[in-house]
Simulated assay, not measured.
Amino acid sequence: MKNGQLPEVRKQARQPARQQIRQLRYAPAPNAAFDVEVLSFERLRHMDPDHHRTHPQRPDFHVLALVRSGAGRHSADFVDHPLKERTVVWIHPGVVHRWTDVDNLEGPLVLFAQGFPPAPGPVAQAAGDVFAPACWQLEEDAWELALRASDHLGHEHAAAVSNPRLASPLLLGHLLSALVLRVLPAGPAEPPAGSTDDQAVFHRYRAAVEERFGRHHHVRDYASALGYGPRTLTRATRAATGLGAKQFLDQRILLEAKRLLAHTDLPVARCAERLGFHDAANFTTFFQRQAGLSPSRWRTGH
């Protein structure tokens, strides 16, 4: 053995491999093939005896959970959240999360596909918010109403599964909308600032960003594709989120960059390529400007 080899081997052995992200697809049970499914923490534990839930996962569907009792922990996009009675958890599609500890939790879990319930309205607006909080607490009076809404949805879902003649996707969609309105952090959503036209423009821009942020990094590209001027996108985005169109786009790219750096072993140059940066140096400059650290230093810290 040559000098210097053993320390290098030891150094590598001390560095644990990053856990790869499990990509989860919406796949309800054959007898429950609706765009919404109602489970429970108890059912989650029963379905996952090997505790895969404690590893990073990325669903392509929504997960809405209400903690009736117990205490535990959950992490979503680099933020650790304590879970206790009256906690609401909402994991949006694409969020990297893990159920760190839910062994003692009880309560419903509602899974639903993207685009369900249908747009438009405050529920669709909340469902499309990629920067929405993952966890929050409800006041006791709002909590009781949320549980009733959840129970109603659960009963209708169970009836639809047991008796297809009673199945009504439209009814399930309405009950899911009622539940979402009851659990939103500030109660039923207020209409966003700006005109109805601005709201429509922002919804189109947000959908386009979600589809293309890994390829297009300039607002003018979206403006051209959507048939608006850059100023129109900026006005609509600021009215809806408080951010300009460019800042909104940059924040979405940054979030995905953090997910790749934290949850994969891809070299920085490959992360840059995944996100549409043709030059790794440009990616490093972008990340440093947005996060205050280089990609390598940020990865080391996470």
Rank of each mutant, 00 (worst) to 15 (best):
Arg53Asn: 03
Glu156Lys: 08
Pro191Met: 03
Arg220Lys: 14
His46Lys: 14
Arg18Ala: 07
Asp151Leu: 12
Ser69Ala: 15
Phe287Thr: 07
Val67Cys: 03
Phe287Arg: 07
Asp50Asn: 11
Gln288Asn: 07
Gln19Pro: 10
Leu176Ser: 02
Met1Trp: 09
Ala127Met: 15
Thr100Ser: 11
Asn31Ala: 01
Gln137Asp: 15
Ala32Glu: 00
Pro230Tyr: 09
His278Asn: 06
Arg220Gln: 10
Val209Leu: 08
Arg252Gln: 13
Pro56Leu: 00
Thr237Asp: 01
His218Leu: 12
Pro108Trp: 03
Arg98Lys: 14
Arg204Ile: 01
Gln15Phe: 03
Asp221Val: 02
Ala158Gln: 11
Arg270Trp: 11
Arg212Cys: 07
Leu64Lys: 11
Leu260Cys: 07
Gly115Thr: 07
Arg212Val: 11
Ala272Gly: 13
Gly4Ile: 03
Leu176Met: 01
Lys258Pro: 08
Asn104Ala: 14
Phe34Leu: 00
His216Cys: 07
Ala280Cys: 04
Gly4Lys: 08
His302Pro: 04
Ser40Val: 03
Trp90His: 10
Gly276Ile: 05
Thr264Val: 12
Ser150Glu: 04
Gly301Ala: 13
Arg270Asp: 12
Pro120Trp: 07
Thr54Arg: 11
Leu83Glu: 04
Arg215Phe: 07
Arg274Gly: 05
Ala186His: 05
Leu171His: 09
Leu226Ser: 05
Ala119Glu: 12
Leu266Asn: 05
Thr234Trp: 13
Thr284Asn: 01
Ser40Arg: 00
Pro230Thr: 07
Gln251Tyr: 15
Lys11Phe: 13
Cys135Tyr: 13
Pro56Cys: 00
Leu66Asn: 03
Arg238Trp: 10
Leu181Asp: 13
Phe202His: 07
Glu211Arg: 15
Ala200Leu: 12
Asp151Asn: 09
Val102Lys: 01
Val38Lys: 01
Thr241Val: 08
Ala149Tyr: 13
Asp48Lys: 06
Asp77Trp: 11
His46Phe: 04
Ala76Trp: 05
Leu24Gln: 13
Phe287Pro: 12
Arg259Cys: 03
Leu249Val: 06
His174Asn: 08
His157Gly: 02
Val180Asp: 03
Arg259Trp: 12
Met1Ser: 14
Gly121Trp: 06
Ala208Trp: 12
Gly173Phe: 02
Arg204Asp: 07
His203Leu: 06
Ala146Arg: 00
Tyr222Cys: 04
His155Val: 15
Ala281Leu: 05
His55Asn: 07
Val63Ser: 05
Leu260Gly: 04
Phe116Gly: 04
Gln137Phe: 14
Arg68Met: 10
Tyr222Asp: 05
Thr237Leu: 00
Ala71Gln: 09
Lys246Thr: 13
Pro7His: 12
Ala32Phe: 00
Leu24Val: 15
Cys135Lys: 02
Val36Glu: 01
Tyr222Glu: 01
Gln137Glu: 14
Arg25Asp: 11
Thr284Arg: 11
Trp298Thr: 03
His155Trp: 15
Pro133Val: 02
Phe248Ile: 05
Gly4Val: 13
Ala200Ser: 06
Pro267Ser: 03
Glu140Ser: 12
Cys271Pro: 04
Arg215Trp: 04
Ala134Asn: 09
Gly72Met: 04
Cys135Asn: 01
Ala257Phe: 00
Gly154Ala: 15
Ala223Phe: 10
Pro192Met: 05
Asn31Leu: 10
Pro117Trp: 10
Gln251Pro: 04
Phe287Leu: 06
Thr284Met: 01
Pro295Phe: 06
His52Phe: 08
Ala239Phe: 02
Leu243Lys: 12
Glu42Asn: 02
